[in-house]
Design a protein around this nucleic acid. Structure first.
Lengths: 338, 338
DNA sequence: CTGAAAGCGCTTACAG
DNA sequence: CTGAAAGCGCTTACAG
């Protein structure tokens, strides 16, 4: 009368007339079990709908199949768009994904206790969540490898996967120059963000090679409305500007809307480019020329690093950069065909 | 030499010189523990960074604090945008969220085994994942209450939370009529979708009250590109149409882009409205008049239903409808001020 | 107010 | 090829 709820290995073993050790082995595909018994056990398990309790397994094996994915309340749709992708990739790699959300003003530290309670195999943290050294150190103490997306840590044990933001910005800057643009303004993101920093560095390096500097820095803070407003204010005075290099697609879209509302044609009067590869950037309203982050590869690598088998000896942190890809659409004047 | 890894209750008990029962009680806030011992235990626990193993707890308490969130690879950004919201709401309700992703051509059935292995407390399934009767029945057998978002099941145990799509469509239709629109085309979604069905029903009911029917049905299948193309083809012939009622914001944005590319001004020449409340709909490129789904309330209710305490006796399925809200922006001609 | 014991559902040496 | 036993880290009656 005990087993009224979910079937357990014990139930199957009774039904099959074997020990629960055998049931466990049969379901795990242990080759030491005879074909006949395995078949019988599998059949019975299927009939009663038995699935081994993952919590119990992980308790005894001392390893978890659960990866944490830490997100922040974010304005940038880039990560939102890839949530399915990371869920799919984790599943393919044999892991489950558990979501942790930290508020815009919070810190990774807020969710470390929960992460620890679930004894995560590893965790992936997106750039927009504040990750204090203390939080990172606690993760390490809890034995949870963490990998940061588009962000760097300087402790010895936190890995990072980044789009090669500087290189991508260089490619874009060169494209702009080849297109004949000389007076380039930059629409920048939040200070202190490594994404913002590296993309600016890339742009400025190329400008410098050509004896140029940006004609203006508009501070969009990675926020759509802010980007719209600051761009609109800037354009109102009809400045002598060729192109706006936005540090993110979201801001580029805001800038394009500002131009439209000012009656400025893109790209005839002004080129606008972005970085990221968000969906709306491809819509006819924008047709944004941009550098696409290699999301699939980045996430795949992040999962590998987060789930890296625990080889006793300290696996030193890895930092991997993956190149983005220039996506030419219609928001920037193109180089003359050669 | 055993406890080298993550601290356990046993470690704390040794450090504090008490039994692990006491440790467990102290951390659970059991009032039978004296202030002094509790303080001491809490202090030690904090020092070594002890967090009780959630897997072990759920094993003995036989209850899980984990909710499943089942998503599909989807074109519609509506749910993507609310992933943070549901993560936050779950956390506030004391649950963790585990993500399950089923492919566009797959079925909920694909992830039921995984859901079962983790002995989920409950699961929330968004409209775009195919949920066969068989999948739903298996969830029931596994004791996992499932709640469907914007979709209905006809078995007796699956709950649903829906935006009141029909009522919302009625409100919008009336608004259009009051604005003087008489020749209204509809840009519809996928057949068989209850969202599509109910929104069409609402629209048509109001049209009928005014002796009208739609002047055309454009099939957008809930896909941006499709909506753009079908609308553009339709508008090319300069049909005599007042307004396009799009069954989703995403399609409305596609339709607006089509109008723009055809040189048709919105709303001067043509009104276009949507339904959902996605972010880009609020951007200056669109300024879309729409009906916003009450996502916060819907998700909150869904979480409550999915986490409903298991009261032995079968909790019959609940179906809750929540009204959307008309959001007036600039994509539709407004009724004359009265 | 606290502890010893049993048990949740598994896996894995250790025997045979 | 299979089983009995121990144990993963907890919680919870049951005693005291």
């Amino acid at each position: 009368m005990k087993r009224q709820g979910t079937p357990s290995a014990t139930l199957i073993s009774e039904l099959a007339g074997v020990s629960k050790s055998t049931v466990s082995r049969a379901l795990a595909g242990n080759p030491s079990i005879s074909e006949a018994t395995r078949k019988r056990i599998l059949k019975i398990a299927a009939e009663v709908g038995y699935e081994p309790n993952a919590m119990a397994s992980s308790l005894v094996t001392m390893k978890s199949g659960v990866l944490g994915f830490v997100i922040a309340s974010m304005e940038n749709p880039f990560y939102q768009e890839h949530i399915e992708r990371i869920a799919r990739l984790s599943a393919e790699a044999g892991h489950q994904l558990m979501l942790f959300q930290v508020s815009a003003t919070g810190d990774l530290l807020d969710v470390v206790p929960a992460m620890a309670r679930y004894r995560l195999r590893g965790a992936i943290v997106i750039a927009s969540v504040n990750s204090s050294d203390k939080a990172l150190e606690q993760c390490h103490r809890h034995g949870i490898p963490v990998v940061l997306i588009n962000r760097l840590a300087n402790d010895g044990h936190t890995s990072s996967v980044l789009c090669n933001n500087e290189a991508g910005a260089r490619v874009m800057a060169r494209y702009l120059i080849e297109g004949g643009h000389r007076r380039i303004a930059v629409l920048s993101g939040r200070e202190g963000s490594i994404v913002n920093r590296d993309r600016l560095i890339g742009l400025r390096a190329v400008l410098a090679e050509h004896g140029l500097t940006e004609v203006a820095e508009l501070k969009g803070e990675f926020i759509f409305d802010k980007a719209y407003q600051v761009t609109r204010d800037y354009l109102k005075a009809r400045p002598d500007v060729d192109a706006i290099f936005a540090v993110s697609d979201l801001m580029a879209c805001g800038a394009m809307d500002a131009a439209r509302d000012e009656g400025i044609r893109v790209p005839q009067d002004l080129s606008i480019v972005g970085f990221d590869g968000i969906r709306p950037a491809s819509w006819p309203a924008y047709r944004l020329t941009t550098v696409e982050q290699p999301a699939e590869e980045m996430l795949k690598r992040a999962i590998e690093l987060a789930a890296r088998p625990d080889t006793g000896d300290v696996p030193s942190a890895e930092v991997v950069y993956i190149n983005g890809r220039l996506k030419i659409r219609a928001s920037a004047r193109k180089p003359a065909a050669s």
